[in-house]
């Protein structure tokens, strides 16, 4: 594989590996609490952060982390208030984020929408050595946090009220999840791109759901399919000369389609064996005597 001899490809592949792990790992909790589109909303807000970085002449990744975190915390606070619809709040952030990004990049000296394109859809050559260091640090922190508080996070996303009665720091964990989602978006931004990052947080989880029944099993399969899609997407986009984000997401969706087919076949096979088994239990009287 001649592609592997290039420094930029090695960096892109390392970044893809980390993104393939972190995006589904954080995304699974968003899916669990039915906030699958939150990553998308955060991605839009991060675009404003990127443009702000160009305008101020600082590293766009840094300003993107800050903007994304603020956006995520705002979404979470609106959700906790629960008075206005969370979807409307998300919509406001979507449009505000995109509009702000395009507006600010226009104001930046020498800036044009072309600068934003690599951030929107990812780019192989965009991952600088400094980016790789930052991506390693951030995803390391994310994975470490998840191994420590993963079970608590599961409990909170599963049943928030129960988690409160169990004495868990629910408010803190909710905000932590929002911040982790924001960091994930920024980590994935260079490889997958801001418009497609949410797909890598959601699609591998959906894929896993077609095949397995437990949460832990879902995590394992989601991470595996996330890594598979992001690595093969980065490699493939080198040969096809396309934006890596697009290919990664197309591959992930292909994986979902295959998993759906497999899952359907497995379920059908199970049902056939179930019917073959004796059904005596169903013939018991419907109501036991008092």
């Amino acid at each position: 594989m001649s592609a592997l001899t290039f420094d930029f490809m090695q960096r892109a592949l390392l970044a893809a590996l980390l993104v393939g792990l972190t995006a589904p790992a954080v995304g699974i909790f968003l899916v669990q609490r039915r906030l699958a589109l939150m990553g998308d909303g955060i991605g839009h807000v991060a675009l404003t952060g990127v443009a702000l970085g160009f305008l101020l002449g600082t590293a766009p990744v840094l300003t993107a982390v800050i903007a994304a975190t603020i956006g995520a915390v705002v979404i979470e606070l609106v959700r906790q208030q629960g008075r206005t619809g969370g979807d409307v709040a998300l919509a406001l952030l979507f449009y505000g984020g995109i509009a702000g990004g395009v507006l600010l990049i226009g104001l930046a000296p020498g800036g044009s929408n072309a600068n934003l394109l690599s951030y929107l859809f990812g780019s192989l050559t965009a991952v600088s050595p400094a980016d790789v260091v930052l991506i390693c640090l951030l995803s390391g922190a994310l994975l470490l946090t998840l191994t420590v508080v993963g079970r608590q996070m599961f409990a909170v996303c599963h049943d928030e009220e129960y988690a409160r009665v169990a004495g868990l720091p629910v408010r803190f964990l909710n905000l932590l999840l929002a911040v982790m989602a924001a960091v994930t978006v920024t980590v994935a931004m260079r490889v997958v791109g801001l418009l497609l990052v949410s797909a890598l947080m959601v699609v591998p989880v959906a894929t896993a759901q077609q095949l397995v029944r437990g949460f832990r099993a879902t995590v394992v399969v989601a991470l595996a399919s996330g890594v598979l899609a992001s690595l093969s997407g980065v490699l493939g986009s080198y040969y096809l000369d396309t934006a890596p984000g697009a290919l990664i997401v197309v591959l992930a969706l292909g994986g979902f389609a295959v998993a759906t087919l497999l899952g359907t076949l497995v379920r059908r096979a199970r049902r056939t064996t179930d019917i073959a088994a004796p059904v005596g239990v169903a013939l018991l009287p419907q109501e036991a005597p008092p």
Binding site: R33, F154, D159, Y162, F215
Partner: peptide
């Protein structure tokens, strides 16, 4: 809080991601 066990009203013990019986029961131990 471990001194209190709470069984909420709604039966819907499922969310966006599937979880096994043991995984859900285990959250009570947290």
């Amino acid at each position: 809080w471990p001194r209190i066990g709470y069984v909420p009203q709604r039966g819907g013990a499922s969310t966006g991601v599937p979880a096994t019986v043991r995984e859900v029961v285990a959250t009570g131990r947290l």
